[in-house]
Simulated assay, not measured.
Amino acid sequence: MDFKLFGEVFVTLLVIVDPPGMVPIFLALTGTLPKRDRRKAGRQAVALAFGVIVVFALLGQTLLDYLHVDLPALQGAGGLLLILIALELLTGKTDDASDRQATSNVALVPLGVPLLAGPGAIVATMLFVQNGENTADYVAIGAGIVAVMIVVLLVLRFSDVIVRVLRPGGIEVLTRIAGLLLAAIAVQLIADSVAAFVTQYTGQAM
């Protein structure tokens, strides 16, 4: 296995996924759930993110070409989805924990996709795979992805400590802050998408 490539994949994806940055959003969306359900949500989010990244690593470019979808479009769609979630956090619509099934689904959207397995992680993984030359490279890439997902799982797993410290009042404040951060991430995704489209079509026109 190419350990240099493993390190590059691990560091790149770790920076993009940003596990510490996911903690406030994770707690905002799952803080009212029982400990068991919160941990389950973390496992589901990581499992989905891993599956999505692997699928796009293997078939991403083929799938996008077949659907005639450009990567900036995927990025913009992720941004729009995050804006909807951010508005719910900012307005307090997620505070009602009576619908446990609906709350648990946040493990899939937006935590699994597009926060953990977002456009950045997908594109980076696709580029690593496209530049791979042999089996050792592909093993290193796969090991890097697995290592990052393990780190994310551990970070989310031990977020229970933060929940005990913050208590319900602190979770509510954190929810509003997370909503603002999520809105900022969404706006940045959309801005990057628009900029990529402008660059793409301007280049084609020239």
Rank of each mutant, 00 (worst) to 15 (best):
L115K: 10
S98R: 04
R167L: 08
I171F: 13
V151C: 10
N105H: 14
Q130D: 13
I171Q: 14
I85P: 12
M149A: 11
V113W: 08
P72M: 04
F158P: 10
L59Q: 13
L81I: 01
T175S: 08
L71P: 08
A121T: 02
L82W: 11
L71W: 09
A107I: 00
L84W: 04
V109F: 12
L90Q: 14
S98C: 07
S98A: 15
L181H: 03
V146D: 06
Q75N: 11
A183Y: 10
T135W: 02
A117R: 05
L82T: 07
D99N: 15
L181F: 09
L180R: 13
E133Y: 07
L63D: 15
D95H: 02
G170S: 06
L59D: 06
G112R: 13
S104V: 00
R176D: 08
A121S: 11
L67W: 13
D160S: 13
V148M: 04
L115G: 10
A147C: 03
R176Y: 02
D96G: 04
E88A: 03
P110I: 00
N134W: 07
T103C: 06
P114W: 02
G79E: 10
D160Y: 02
A147T: 02
Y138M: 14
A124M: 04
L64M: 07
V165S: 11
N105Q: 13
I141F: 09
G144M: 09
L156V: 01
I122M: 09
